[in-house]
């Protein structure tokens, strides 16, 4: 008798589980691709390689970039705030080789990076803030263009770099990612367009590919302060 009761309870629990799962929360538009999952970039290079060839740097930006490269060659990384665990910024974060997670929902898409657990949340149906919030990772707005997920990001500070090789940028930076999922859902192509009139004489685009991490992958906890052992700011960048 007891076992019948527990069976009945188990069945009731199981069916209520199913019912609740089925009724669940707001659903994704089934006509759009779902980018949810764990991804990593393939074909990483430390210096960004624009599809058009060379970076269209202004003369001043070219000078600053050259100085950063000279410093880096000498082991001086004071121009690179990731050396004190500040965020990579954009598009640098999207160009890294480390895994990241996409969580796609009807009103937001979250990009959660392994690197120091950085998060970017892109909002559908949103507008950029009237005033530049000067975020390290900017403010992101998501929209659909057919089957492409378009993420426009602006509202940056000038404390980050374009890539691991030290290309600088200013606060007028705008980054547009156009993500498309291949037919079998295993690969994302992202065309990243970068605009910044202070730094570049024209917009430029780099195309990067992300592949799915193996099934069962769980994002490891990455703590920059442990990796690097120093998060104290240098006086140059310390804010009051």
């Amino acid at each position: 008798m007891k076992s019948i009761v527990s069976c009945a309870v188990a069945f009731a629990v199981a069916s209520s589980l199913f019912a609740a799962t089925a009724s669940a929360q707001a659903k994704l538009d089934p006509s759009k691709p779902d980018f949810t999952g764990n991804w990593h970039r393939v074909g990483y290079t430390s210096a960004v390689k624009p599809d058009q060839g060379a970076l269209p740097l202004t003369a001043e930006a070219a000078k600053a970039y050259a100085a950063n490269k000279v410093a880096a060659a000498k082991g001086d990384r004071t121009h690179d705030n990731t050396s004190i665990c500040l965020p990579e910024g954009m598009p640098r974060l999207a160009l890294k080789a480390q895994p990241f997670e996409i969580l796609q929902r009807p009103t937001v898409v979250a990009f959660n990076y392994q690197l120091n657990r950085l998060v970017r949340v892109a909002y559908f149906d949103a507008k950029p803030s009237a005033e530049n919030p000067e975020y390290y990772l900017g403010e992101s707005i998501a929209k659909w263009d057919g089957n492409e997920l378009v993420v426009e990001t602006s509202g940056f500070n000038d404390q980050t770099l374009i890539d691991d090789s030290g290309v600088p940028h200013g606060t007028e930076l705008k980054v547009t990612e156009r993500l498309s999922l291949d037919k079998n859902g295993k690969r994302i192509k992202s065309r990243i367009t970068v605009e910044d009139p202070e730094t570049f004489t024209a917009p430029w685009t780099v195309t990067v590919n992300y592949e799915r991490m193996p099934a069962g992958f769980k994002m490891p906890e990455d703590v920059c302060a442990e990796r690097i052992g120093n998060t104290a700011p240098r006086s140059r960048n310390a804010k009051k």
Binding site: P87, P133, Y135, A225, A238
Partner: peptide, 9 residues
């Protein structure tokens, strides 16, 4: 955006 590392005085 809350970047602890920015103001780690």
């Amino acid at each position: 955006e809350y970047i602890c590392e920015e103001n780690n005085r």
